[in-house]
Amino acid sequence: MRDEPAASAADEIGSAAGAETAREYRISELAQAAGIPVRTLRYYQERKLLPPPRREGRIGLYSEDHLARLRVIGNLLERGHTLEGIRELLSAWEQGHDVAAVLGLEKTVTEPWSRETPVTMSLTELAELFPGEVDPAAVEQAVALGHIAIDGDQVTHWSRRQLDATVALVRAGVPLSEVLTTSRRLQQSVDELADMFVEMIMTHVVGPLNTTDLADRELTDLTDTLARLRPGAEVAVEAGFARAMERRVRQEIDRVFGRLATTHRDTGESPA
């Protein structure tokens, strides 16, 4: 099922194509009808998001098509699109592409990968989770890593699960500063993994396609392919990390048992 925001934007563009053209607006009237300042409307024209008006002498007259397109632009801006992305989307529509197919591809590749639940608390409450560990340097490092965002006296941690894991590590005896340092190194590693996976997909899946002249069917097929590959990326990283942890933990356990056996031999005791 297509998501409602994508369908809404596609429907609005479709409406723009069939809008009544009997009524015409001067620029101030069009801006008022669209609920935007005149300067914003002029800026859209400069960015080629809006076709030029019909001219009667020195007066520019805009149609219902212009108003419908302004509403489409507003809808897409609310969904997080950049103006450049909107310009390209409108261009694809003008060239005959099914906008729903274009929006479906956009949604597949840009929807958030994270399913984490943020948690908000006061700075005092955060400090209570890590007694004696939360100083200005630690807060600054956590902000730089993207773990927390501060708004006044409120702190929002991006992930309840990661916060709980950090609390468990610190309570087990790992200094908070060490956890943050390790987190920075981990982020560098996962950035490299993401780069590797994206490069692989771009080279072997997207690269062979003529992306300047994709038919709507090809857009839909590409969307389906990327949607199927997405879980695979997460599983590959999760499973690979789990195997690596198993090997590494086993090495450390064997080393600990080896030291215990050596100690018992030196004291003449039998290991339990």
Rank of each mutant, 00 (worst) to 15 (best):
G232L: 15
P131L: 06
D224R: 13
R171P: 00
D224Q: 15
R171T: 08
E133N: 09
A242Y: 09
V237L: 13
Q188I: 09
A172I: 02
L193Q: 14
V134T: 08
E192V: 15
E246L: 09
R160I: 01
Q187I: 04
D153V: 15
V179Y: 04
I253R: 05
L260N: 05
F257M: 09
P208S: 15
G240P: 05
P208T: 15
A172G: 08
R161W: 03
V249R: 06
V174G: 03
E128Y: 04
A165Q: 06
F257T: 01
R247W: 07
V235C: 03
V256S: 00
S177I: 12
L229A: 08
L229S: 08
P136C: 01
A239Q: 12
P208R: 13
T212H: 15
F197P: 02
V206K: 12
V190R: 09
D224H: 13
I148D: 01
A233S: 04
V249H: 04
V139C: 00
I150Q: 07
R255A: 11
R171Q: 10
V174F: 08
E238S: 13
V237S: 04
T225V: 14
R248Y: 09
D191R: 15
T220D: 08
R250V: 03
P175Y: 05
A172Q: 12
D254A: 14
R248G: 05
Q141D: 10
T211C: 15
P175H: 05
A227K: 13
M196V: 08
T211A: 11
L169D: 01
T223R: 06
Q154F: 09
F257N: 13
T203R: 15
A144K: 07
I148A: 01
S189H: 12
G132Y: 07
P131S: 06
H204L: 11
A137C: 01
